[in-house]
């Protein structure tokens, strides 16, 4: 049976990437990317535009072949056993990728079927996820009519259709308003409670700080700093990290005016690693 082929090695559970390289013509997207995410933990991959976050996620989720290096996800080699990996991962890309012509329910059932759930199981799981993600009312409307936040939620729900062991989230809150962002954060936290391994890319330290057990800072295609949020702040040193006490930000004002609760009034700013 395709699904059970080969035995995953325990030391390869979670995410293990070793010296990944990827070149686009002259441009180096990944330059010796090495990262280990223990099963059941959340790693925040933090980096500026063009650092190589999406490239790393696409290689780890079997969408892109590396030019060099190795990676195992959920126990399987992403280059040699992509099929095995695909049964065990979920992916939310940087840009929403659901079928706009179909309804939310049809999308979920489609991807459930493509993950080889039986028609019945796909239907049941779709119903569950629609409820869980607050999409039950919009379930039978075409996705083209969804708001950005609803699409993001559907995207996230679709990536969970097979109850993945490893979940990749590429800037899952980009383009969302602050309330929707906090909503997505709380859903990610719920997932972590169920033992899912998560690799989350973001450009915001605050987002990584909120969600991650471990933060890896990527710049120019390689990891330049790694550790728990606190370790990282300590490692970088007080001259690199400023804690600013300040007036409420526009985010918080927005939250206040729209009736949602504001979070806090201090934030940590990480200066670009030089």
């Amino acid at each position: 049976m395709a699904y059970e082929e080969g035995v995953p090695a325990a030391e390869h559970a979670g995410i293990v990437a070793q010296d990944l390289r990827k070149q686009y013509g002259e441009r180096t997207a990944l330059d010796g990317f090495t990262l280990r995410v223990r099963p059941g933990t959340v790693c925040g991959l933090l980096g500026p535009n063009g650092a190589g976050k999406t490239t790393a996620v696409r290689i780890l989720s079997t969408l892109l072949r590396p030019d060099g290096g190795h990676a195992h996800v959920a126990g399987y080699d992403v280059v040699r056993r992509p099929r095995q990996v695909r049964y065990r991962i979920g992916l939310v890309g940087q840009h929403a990728c659901v079928d706009e012509i179909l309804t939310g329910r049809q999308n979920l059932q489609l991807f459930g079927r493509l993950g080889h759930l039986t028609a019945d199981a796909a239907r049941r799981r779709a119903g569950e996820l629609l409820d869980q993600f607050g999409l039950a009312d919009a379930a039978d409307r075409a996705v083209a009519q969804y708001s950005g936040g609803m699409r993001r939620r559907l995207d996230l729900a679709t990536s969970l259709i097979l109850r993945p062991a490893v979940l990749f989230l590429d800037e899952p809150t980009t383009g969302l308003d602050p309330a929707a962002r906090i909503d997505v954060w709380s859903r990610i936290r719920e997932l972590v409670g169920t033992g899912t391994t998560v690799l989350l890319t973001t450009q915001y330290l605050e987002e990584a700080d909120q969600l991650a057990d471990q933060i890896a800072v990527i710049d120019a295609g390689r990891i330049v700093a790694e550790g728990t949020p606190d370790e990282l702040k300590a490692k970088v040193g007080p001259d690199r990290v400023e804690t600013v006490t300040r007036k409420p930000t526009l985010d918080e004002v927005f939250l206040h005016l729209t009736g949602k609760t504001a979070t806090r009034s201090t934030e940590t700013v990480l200066e670009p690693a030089r």
């Binding site: 049976m1 395709a2 080889h116 759930l117 799981r125 109850r163 993945p164 062991a165």
Partner: peptide, 17 residues
């Protein structure tokens, strides 16, 4: 640890098609 629900009964390319 979560285990995937997807234990394919018959994973054939014809069905996928």
């Amino acid at each position: 640890m979560t285990t995937p629900t997807a234990v394919p009964a018959s994973a054939s390319w014809l069905r996928d098609a």
